[in-house]
Design a protein around this nucleic acid. Sequence first.
DNA 1: GCAATGATTGACAGTCACTGACACATACTG
DNA 2: CAGTATGTGTCAGTGACTGTCAATCATTGC
Lengths: 191, 191
Amino acid sequence: MSRRAVQSRIARTAESLFVDKGFEETTVDEIAAAVGMSQRSFFRYFASKDEVVLDSLARLGEEMAERLTARPPEESEWDSLRRSFDPIVERYADPGCREHDAALQRIVDCSPRLFAAYLGRLDRLQRTLAEMLLHRAACRPGRATDVLVLRATVGGAFACLHATMTHVMAEPEAFAPCLDRTMAALRPAAV
Amino acid sequence: MSRRAVQSRIARTAESLFVDKGFEETTVDEIAAAVGMSQRSFFRYFASKDEVVLDSLARLGEEMAERLTARPPEESEWDSLRRSFDPIVERYADPGCREHDAALQRIVDCSPRLFAAYLGRLDRLQRTLAEMLLHRAACRPGRATDVLVLRATVGGAFACLHATMTHVMAEPEAFAPCLDRTMAALRPAAV
DNA sequence: GCAATGATTGACAGTCACTGACACATACTG
DNA sequence: CAGTATGTGTCAGTGACTGTCAATCATTGC
């Protein structure tokens, strides 16, 4: 069985345990036993207990980066960022994905430690996207780009995304309209 | 000796150890021994090793909250937030504070785990300030406030702050102008 | 068909953050 | 002086994570 498949099997097992007992209350030993492997082997597939939950976020991040590269260079940064959020919007549109993601989000929100790790991943993703946009701006001649403002812009777009996600989690509402509303409200004046 | 004083003594000792050996490489036992107390007593003053470093951030957060309450209710949220960031600007103006804060920031940046915890605290602070602004808006009659947009706005302001801090850490530049530049660029259109 | 090789695994021991329980000492209060 | 609150050390225990070693298993070359 491929590494990817084993990871997926572990993740599914672990997540159902987390839903049942909570993240902190579930030990790695229990997960390993439920999967049918030693604790040591668990750590060969995931660097930490956190990563079991945050792994899907990493894959979503890669997808977002791909979407960003696919955007036309002349598009405004803000609109490109909005489009790179589309994978999340699409996942939310699929009821199966939405249920699963909501369960994960609930697990993350219930553990401060895990939630912090989640924010750490989000921050790294922001750096990646900012770097990509910086590179894109450098290739396109014209007015000089302000690195500082660009990074803040990426952070602002993610703030919209984050606010929307927590808001939609609390009271079920359509995702895309909320995201569009916040991103319209915070859109930088300089295009 | 007061609790506060003991905490401060532990923090000073721990920070110098962190600077020397790094955060992860310094054990709680070492810190406790350097201070001259048992490990158990260390945990009576700080709930975790992280908190030794993040404690000063908590106090700064309280100061920011105080500044925000002191702002006039009719002021725009964006400007009020900018003013609540003043304590950071002021600390940066004092060379002694700047050196100390920069050292702390370097410690935090070097440990992904600690950095994540730092982001977690920042997020909680954002929720607090958003709650305060929401309450302020509710008291003031007039047009209804969009909770979602308000939260995103707070997140956007913090994105400016965060971008500025990391930028100024990398290449020494005056703090206030950078912060003002980003916050001018991301200022929401609706006042 | 078989041996060498490399990857995967379990078992075990060890480190470190953190917690609970208990005993002891000091200082304040009636 | 008895009682109580508070701060402390000691000890044992849990749980995440790591290093090491030996066994197993599949692949490759001959």
